[in-house]
Simulated scan of single mutants.
Amino acid sequence: MDIRRLLPWRVAHGLAQLRLKLSRAFWDRAIVRTRPLPAGGDGRFEVHSLLGSKHVGMCLWAVKSLLHYAGRAYQVVLHDDGTLSARDIATLEAHLPGVRIIRRRSADEAIKPCLARHPHVAAYRDGSLGRTPWGRRMSVFSLKILDFNLLSDACRILALDTDVLFFRRPDEIIDWMERDEDSGSLYCFEDYRPLFVADHLLAGFEKKREPRCYFNSGLICFDKRGLDLDLLERWIQDHADDVDTAYTFEQRAWNHLIHATVSHAPLPETYSFNYTGSECVATHFGMKQLFFDNLPRIYAALRH
Results as ranks from 00 to 15, higher is better:
L219T: 04
R225Q: 11
S263E: 12
V243F: 03
A253G: 04
I236Q: 02
H264S: 08
S263C: 12
T245F: 10
G226M: 09
A260W: 04
A265P: 04
L229R: 00
R225H: 14
H264G: 02
D228G: 06
V262Y: 08
T245M: 06
L229I: 03
I220V: 15
A265E: 13
C221M: 13
T261R: 08
T248H: 11
L229G: 00
H264E: 07
L232V: 04
L227H: 03
A253H: 01
D230R: 11
Q237K: 14
L231H: 14
H256M: 14
I258P: 01
D242A: 15
W254Y: 12
W235I: 08
R252D: 11
G226R: 05
D242L: 14
H264P: 02
I236R: 01
H239G: 04
D242I: 04
E250Q: 15
L231A: 13
D241T: 10
T261M: 13
V243A: 06
D228R: 11
I236E: 01
T245D: 10
R225G: 12
D223C: 10
H239S: 09
V243T: 11
A240H: 14
D230I: 05
L229W: 00
L227S: 03
Q251E: 12
K224T: 14
D238Q: 14
N255K: 14
F249M: 08
D238N: 10
Y247P: 03
L227P: 01
D230E: 13
D244W: 06
S263Y: 08
R225M: 09
D244T: 06
S263W: 07
H259A: 07
A246V: 10
E250T: 07
F222K: 02
D230M: 07
D242K: 14
L219P: 02
E250L: 07
L219A: 07
L229Q: 01
D230L: 09
Y247H: 12
S263G: 07
L229H: 00
L227D: 00
I220Q: 02
E250Y: 05
V262T: 12
R252A: 13
A260P: 04
H259I: 08
A240F: 09
L257R: 01
L227E: 00
T248D: 13
R252H: 14
R234V: 09
A246Q: 12
D241C: 07
N255R: 15
C221F: 09
D241L: 10
F222P: 00
H239Q: 12
Q237S: 14
C221A: 15
R252F: 10
W235S: 03
T248Y: 13
K224A: 05
D238W: 06
A240C: 10
D242S: 13
I258N: 01
D230C: 08
K224D: 05
I258W: 00
H264Y: 15
A240I: 03
T245N: 09
L257I: 09
D223W: 05
V262N: 10
W254V: 05
L227I: 08
I258F: 04
V243N: 02
V243M: 06
W235R: 07
D238A: 15
F222N: 00
T245Y: 11
W235V: 07
Q237G: 15
K224R: 15
I236W: 03
L229D: 00
L232W: 01
I258S: 02
E233R: 04
E233M: 08
W254S: 00
H264T: 04
D242R: 15
K224M: 07
D223L: 06
